[in-house]
Design a protein around this nucleic acid. Structure first.
Lengths: 206, 206, 206, 206
DNA sequence: ACGTAAGCGAGACGGTACGTCATGTCTTATA
DNA sequence: TATAAGACATGACGTACCGTCTCGCTTACGT
């Protein structure tokens, strides 16, 4: 959880209020959108005093962050499928991501969180560390397995690899620079795996 | 420019005020950051009445958008270099992008604009059409040339290709999911060109 | 009116809002009492933004003060009766005061104003100057007439005289140190006129 | 002490805390003024939990009241001087009062207490009974002595007499309707004793 | 050339939300 | 069981901006 200003006694903290706040924040973000997401609104929906939010979180973004963290913890780790067919597995995961990002209940809160991250480096670090980190590890784990069975080169930088697969999706989603379809997901995976120069140099250079 | 509410007489519009507003918006965004960027602040810095802003732009994001448009028009088209060496040319361009994104005078206003885009589909469409569009076309043009000389396969989807190269950079910048260095730019270009599976299929599949 | 912080343009001031605020302040004070009299409440009852109050008045007390001033101006000057019989005239006026102070619609707002005066010397000065001042002048005028017709000594200090008549009433009202009855008013007038040593020195000093 | 809500076991009450609270209340009132006098502040300065205050006192005013009571009891009864010269004795006492009311260490707490009395009839009754009462009795005692030696008429209402002497002073102090000087005290005593019509009936009624 | 209608700088307005403070109630642990 | 400590729901504080409005002023057009 991002930094606190003073030092309230966490042992007396009301778990009830904490959960109500995080749930309200997530739901409100999905309901009214980022622009109308206010701390007053969260407090009201959670049936909580504003001070209880200000006591435990330094910013609206931090609340949202914890709301996502709560969901992530509730869901638990997300290993990527491994059927032995890397391309198919990756397509499956990216297609799922595309579907999720098209669902307003996830899209809106996630946009709200990303808005905050955009302007709060501390929050961004927390995000990278505690929310994106584990997901990225799962992705890298799948790619590492592919390396072990010789489907990917040993010297491939897995962080770059992950970004090459998911980065285009993320930026297209954030900037709405194009439609998010399963077809797009498929094409992305295929192109990332093969590279722009393509997998069949023999034909190309012929 | 996104839609207007009423229909003021554009022929009487004060060019002086327009430029002052757009300049003030851009500079203020770089100076105080998105959170403190207000229409009142822009009006004050531009020496302009608030109504003059509300008369001509539907939102803060639209002002920011026009501020970027003004700059883009001032600079003119940006063809990518073509030395014949695609990889080197792309690295050069991505390194330049990395450097620009590390400069707070561009970073902050661009983040501000992206924040607005994140929550305003209309603005996102305008952005895709009038700001990102021409840039993307330049990029595609360079790739198309590479196709013509056989450095890239004919059937390569150029939009995907552009996103594969710049998408990871954009998302890393927006989410601060990693450092933006020239080395990163180089590695990104190389990996995108070769694909995750690498450029030497002979060895890999051996 | 007590001092202002900045310098808003009074020529653009909304008379409608001003009256609504002053009326609401007076009525609210009478309705909910001083403890629950809030600027938010006044603004809400007046159908006005809080800032409109903060723009024109430096404090809750100043609003209340102006509310009384408005009433005082609406009512106009209050000459004391002069039937030739000083004692009877004074009794009449003090009895009226007693009755007014027993009416919650005047009692509560006046207590609220006095509370603010109690802790705000600037407001107290404004009160003494613009609200109590004219009233005191009316009282002194009546006493001066009595002096002219020989009913009161020429060298009587009229300010002291006024305070001797109304001070006990005021302090009894403010501190609730005793019941406010017309009988009390009568006795007060009589005793003040005659003095503690009484009107019949002949017997006393005998 | 004004009424309590529940019935805590007074035998277990901490005398240490009680004194700390009353001392802190009085000192804080003198230091920060009524507006900033808070129960939280008193508790903090007394090194006491808030609940300890709420347990034993129904309101901030009640605490302040007890703080004054504590001081009054520490000082003990205050008989007025009796040199045989009533006027001189009264002037001495009123001059002392004037001096006290000009001392911020007494002025501020006393204003704070009066503020609470202004809006709390129960507290006002307690004040009249236990703080002002004894003082008033001392005053009446002195006047009664004067009656016995023929300096004041037998039928003089001593309560009215006391109010005629101290009421003007009190109201001038509370409302700051004029300067509180020893000269004022003297003039007040003299005028109250002689009455507005003055001490020389011979000339007047001539 | 001159009225008139528009855009303009200015800023008051009714609102919403901010982040802080104090209220009075409650719970916990210490003694 | 009273206490010190302090979290809690509540609600007011005074401030910052929102987007709308109205005011005089200037500026250019159409008669």
């Amino acid at each position: 959880m991002p930094g606190r200003r003073s030092a309230p006694d966490a042992s007396r903290r009301s778990e009830r209020s904490r959960l109500a706040i995080l749930t309200a924040a997530f739901e409100l973000a999905g309901k009214v959108g980022y622009a109308r997401l206010s701390i007053e609104g969260i407090a009201a929906r959670a049936g909580v005093g504003k001070q209880t939010i200000y006591r435990w979180w330094p910013s609206k973004g931090a609340v949202l962050f914890d709301a996502f963290l709560l969901r992530a913890e509730a869901i638990g780790p997300h290993p990527l499928p491994d059927t032995g067919n890397l391309e198919r597995d990756l397509k499956k995961v990216l297609r799922a991501a595309v579907i999720e990002l098209n669902d307003p209940r996830y899209d809106e809160p996630l946009r709200a969180l990303n808005t905050e991250i955009l302007h709060d480096p501390e929050l961004a670090a927390a995000y990278a560390d505690r929310l994106e980190g584990p997901v990225r590890e799962s992705r890298k784990a799948r790619l590492r397995k592919a390396q072990r069975v010789g489907q990917l080169p040993e010297n491939l930088d897995l962080d770059i690899a992950v970004e090459l697969l998911w980065g285009p999706l993320t930026s297209r989603w954030l900037q709405r620079s194009g439609p998010l379809t399963t077809k797009y997901a498929d094409l992305l995976v295929r192109t990332a795996l093969d590279g722009l120069r393509g997998k069949a140099p023999a034909k190309m250079r012929a």
